[in-house]
């Protein structure tokens, strides 16, 4: 039983402010997103419709703390079919961003953040790789791209991720 007295009426307005979340209120609950979703097809614990509806009801805690929020494969199958024209994958992404802001960043993303900060890319380019490329006749690539750090500093995302 959920007593809506405890719901956060501002939650939906917060999501709307996020990149990709603008169209949240258009949802009328048809569940075409869930029916289109390949992840939902294999694992019923993830249901985009339910995440969106809980968000609309203001059940912030329940949405942000759910591990299944991160199951969205961002495949956009839902986006193509939403009768209200909501880019559903982007909307779920906005909720993810909001979750990170609220201290719910999964460990995997923290690792990726560290790699990007260190290398500017996800995989370390070792000398072995460069040699192999050379042997194959492929051009050399940069081992690190420090300019990415500038961007991370600019958005101040580290503070948010490491919260």
């Amino acid at each position: 039983m959920i007593d809506l007295k405890n719901a956060d009426v501002n939650f939906k307005w917060e999501i709307i402010k996020h990149e990709g979340g603008e169209q949240l209120l258009k949802c009328f609950g048809c569940s075409d997103c869930a029916a289109s979703c390949p992840v939902r097809y294999f694992d019923e614990r993830y249901n985009p419709r339910k995440i969106i509806r809980l968000t609309l009801l203001g059940l912030k805690e329940q949405v942000l703390s759910s591990p299944f929020l991160w199951f969205c494969a961002h495949c956009h199958a839902c986006t193509e079919r939403c009768p209200q024209g909501i880019p559903v994958a982007e909307l779920i992404n906005a909720i993810k961003n909001y979750a990170v802001e609220n201290g719910f960043c999964p460990e995997g993303y923290k690792v990726q953040f560290d790699l990007l900060k260190k290398l500017g890319r996800l995989y370390e380019v070792e000398d072995f790789d460069l040699k192999k490329r050379q042997k194959l006749g492929l051009p050399p690539i940069d081992k690190t791209i420090p300019e990415v750090v500038k961007i991370l500093e600019y958005t101040g995302i580290e503070k948010v991720v490491k919260r």
Binding site: I2, L4, K50, R53, L54, L57
Partner: peptide, 12 residues
């Protein structure tokens, strides 16, 4: 009960 979320709700 909200069928969209399958949650039992009480609204004051």
């Amino acid at each position: 009960e909200d069928l969209y979320t399958n949650e039992l709700l009480e609204i004051e």
